[in-house]
Design a protein around this nucleic acid. Structure first.
Length: 596
RNA sequence: GCACCCGUAGUUCAAUUGGAUAGAAUUUCAGAUUCCGGUUCUGAUGGUUGGGGGUUCGAAUCCCUUCGGGUGCACCA
């Protein structure tokens, strides 16, 4: 029986006995007691004053007296206005803690045979990953871990945008100005090499446009008639016609880019179960257009174009097939949705995509519902805000983009610098030290991007992101490293910290109860983070846990404690905090070092 | 113009989804260690929750209005 249930059923009974009123357990909500008051659980009596026919204060007092008298588990109560605060006896907390110690994989819900597909990253193959991708990747990876912890069988997929006019732009610039450069010949990562020529294209395009304007052409016209652009369009047509030369070049350059991406993903600690390529999916969805016409979901206009009318749901009419019979973005997405369902038979399918596409996904999901897709109810757009810089928005053409590889390297360097200043890496060999800097630097970056609500836009302050104090990953990692040191010592001293010893005690200090409370919260936090698709809840939680432990640590000594049972209990408490920190940080994709 | 999202200490973010005196971090200042790691801990300073109205026992949260910022409104992806 859980503590919540015990209190609720007692309250329900109290209503019956004291007020002759019927209040079911389901109607009773408990909340956490605020820190400044005594107790752990709070029942708000305002809404029930009418039922008890007494004032909220009096209602609380009567209930409190009944609870203390009838339940040994309840130690005391106090009433502040309409709030009944309930304090539990130490034994309840000790038993709860002992039960947690005996739970393997504490906090992780067992597999429930539910499948979910999480799609994220989705880069274009014409330029390297940037800061925006990092938020996307970290979010996608983290939410996958969180859903796994909630019992889902998770697959991670990446839909690569590997075709289209923008890809031809970098290809064309390479043909014109590349001189046969390769990643090997220039020691440049493949994605950066492609990006270099994408930028080059844009420069040439601007130059040619300006020349046409000087020759007297209208600006609008010149933008469409620049020779380099026409040539890129021609290249796209050749690509679609399967021209061997263009295809060969495309394969070669994309190959370089993939090698570059893989390196970046590896640095991030991210892997995908399945890759989808737009070159293989961009023709999908046309049969669905036929199906929609037959079902009367879509309609055809006089010019032959096909549309869907969503005005009844407060949206517009939306084109799903051009007059010339070619498909558009959403056609392809309909087809891909079917394909993904056929591949994975998921219950949930999550799209991690920026919030500028909110409308697109609303439309897509609505169409799939209208078409009667059984899986449509499980589709979810994990929408996230943009990453801004103090200087404003990132713009690739203005060179204000923060490159993902550069940024990660910078974080590693900063971690190295911080660590060396403190001189804490004696006894580390070269590889161990490097690994530590990676854990610290990447952890700081991931935490910085995951600690805020995904829906909100982030202001990325480079100075702040490398901070190692306050609400940061290194603060938590430090707490973990310090506990690890305590546990090493405990092992040396051969302190046996099993749950049996805990049960033999009957007293706890306030800081110990506070710590057990936070630990006990972990499973519910994982659940909430999964329900809300929000890793920031986990980040907040770990920070609270680490802070609570540090508070405990300064007040209570472990190895100087005279009572060996209390000492063992504190070791067990430390151990459980370490386990929970490690487990929760992994949900954010962050590793914790045992020494730093 | 229409649609959607967001406005909370100087700054960056929270607020148990309608609950108590709106909390953290950071900055500045003042303090704590015979100790298991000082990248730690305690305290102080800082708020008309953009403005106005409403709903109710109770509003940062819900409704209306107004101001400010962002995004989307391609037969692009």
């Amino acid at each position: 029986m859980t503590i919540d249930f015990l209190i609720k059923s007692a309250i329900s009974k109290a209503f019956k006995v004291a007020f002759d009123a019927e209040l079911t357990i389901a109607e009773i909500a408990l909340q956490e007691t605020r820190k400044e008051f005594v107790g752990s659980h709070t029942f708000v009596t305002f809404p029930f004053a009418r039922m008890s026919k007494k004032s909220p204060e009096e209602t609380g007092r009567v209930l409190g007296e009944y609870l203390v008298q009838s339940k040994v588990e309840i130690k005391s109560f106090n009433v502040v206005k309409g709030f009944l605060n309930i304090e539990l006896s130490d034994v309840v907390w000790l038993n709860l803690f002992a039960a947690i110690l005996d739970t393997p994989n504490y906090g992780i819900h067992p597999p429930a045979n539910k499948k979910v597909l999480v799609e994220f990253s989705s880069p274009n193959t014409n330029k390297p990953l940037h800061l925006g991708h990092l938020r996307n990747n970290f979010l996608g990876h983290s939410i996958s871990q969180i859903l796994t912890a909630n019992g889902y069988e998770v697959s991670m997929s990446n839909l690569v945008n590997d075709r289209g006019i923008h890809i031809c732009k970098s290809m064309l610039a390479y043909v014109r100005y590349g001189n046969g450069e390769t990643p090997k010949s220039s020691q440049l990562k493949g994605d950066h090499l492609a990006g270099k020529y994408y930028v080059k294209f844009d420069q040439e395009y601007k130059k040619e446009t300006e020349e046409l304007i000087l020759q007297g052409m209208e600006a609008e016209q010149a933008k469409k008639k620049a020779p380099i652009l026409l040539e890129a369009q021609e290249m796209l047509q050749k690509w679609e016609a399967n021209d061997p030369e263009v295809i060969a070049l495309w394969k070669q350059m994309n190959g370089w880019v993939y090698a570059g991406f893989n390196e970046s993903y590896q640095t991030m600690g991210i892997q995908f179960d399945k890759y989808y390529y737009e070159s293989e999916t961009y023709l999908l969805g046309k049969d669905i257009v036929e199906e929609g016409l037959e079902k009367g979901v879509f309609f055809k206009k006089d010019d032959g174009s096909v549309w869907v009318d969503l005005t009844d749901e407060g949206m517009d009419e939306k084109l799903v097939l051009r007059a010339d019979g070619t498909s558009v973005y959403i056609t392809q997405d309909m087809g891909t949705a079917d394909l993904k369902y056929a591949d994975f038979k998921f219950e949930k399918s999550v799209y991690v995509v920026g919030n500028e596409q909110d409308y697109h996904f609303k439309v897509l999901f609505s169409i799939l519902k209208k078409l009667g897709r059984t899986y449509a109810g499980g589709l979810y757009h994990l929408s996230y805000g943009m990453v801004d810089l103090p200087s404003g928005k990132m713009k690739s053409r203005e060179g204000t983009v923060v490159d993902a590889d550069d940024l990660m390297q910078e974080m590693f360097d900063t971690a190295e610098q911080h660590t060396k200043e403190l001189g804490k890496v004696e006894g580390f060999d070269e590889t161990e030290a490097k690994e530590l800097y990676r854990k610290l630097g990447l952890g700081a970056l991931k935490f910085y991007l995951l600690r805020v609500d995904p829906k909100k836009r982030i202001l990325f302050n480079p100075q702040e992101s490398v901070e190692f104090q306050g609400f940061t990953a290194p603060f938590i990692q430090y707490t973990f490293a310090r506990i690890s040191s305590i546990l090493r010592r405990a092992k040396q001293l051969e302190i046996d910290a099993n749950s049996g010893i805990i049960k033999n005690q009957n007293q706890l200090a306030a800081e110990e109860i506070d710590l057990i409370k936070v630990i006990a919260d972990y499973p519910a936090k994982i659940f909430l983070a999964g329900e809300n698709m929000d890793p920031s809840l986990v980040a907040q939680y770990i920070y609270d846990l680490a802070k609570e432990y540090n508070r405990f640590y300064t007040v209570h000594s472990i190895f100087k404690e005279q009572d060996s049972q209390v000492m063992a209990m504190r070791v067990a408490l430390s151990n459980q905090v370490a386990i929970t920190i490690e487990s929760a940080m992994l949900l954010l994709g962050i590793e914790v070092p045992e020494r730093m």
